[in-house]
């Protein structure tokens, strides 16, 4: 699996990726989706909602269980990945590309990302 360059990961398995336009993409790491198994339902937030770092903004359900997904940074939701509603399995297949969750206009990404890890360090942390 291709891991995008420059992603930052939280210990609760969300990733944060800065886009060219200054917005941020948030998704779940390959490790997280592998642990969840077959994903069958995803509940996404409404566009325009503000969330604080650490707040639950989405729920991902596998066959086995429901898991809450936390904001890695504070900010306003600008886009959600509508494709996941009809075809949640995209998240299993492509967590870093087609399976992204939301795009967010971050309040202060610099300050909020202090406790996030680079992918290599994240991998080390979870193993």
């Amino acid at each position: 699996m291709m891991v995008p360059e420059g992603i930052l990961c939280s210990k609760s398995h969300e990733y944060l990726l800065e886009n060219a336009d200054g917005s941020y993409t948030v998704g779940l790491t390959d490790y997280a989706v592998e642990q969840l198994g077959d994903i069958v339902f995803i509940e996404l937030p409404e566009i325009g909602t503000n969330f604080s770092k650490g707040e639950v903004f989405a729920t991902v359900e596998s066959v086995k269980a429901a898991s809450e997904i936390y904001m890695p940074v504070s900010g306003k939701i600008t886009e959600v990945n509508e494709k996941l509603v009809e075809t949640p399995e995209i998240l299993n297949e492509s967590p870093f590309e087609d399976g992204w969750l939301i795009k967010v206009e971050a309040q202060d990404a610099q300050a909020d990302s202090g406790d996030l890890l680079e992918y290599e360090d994240y991998k080390e942390e979870i193993e």
Partner: peptide
């Protein structure tokens, strides 16, 4: 297999995927 605890036992919850 992915192993989980069930009723005091370490058991396989899945090998490839639950749906398959």
């Amino acid at each position: 297999a992915k192993i989980v605890e069930f009723g005091g036992w370490d058991m396989p919850v899945q090998y490839t995927g639950i749906i398959a």
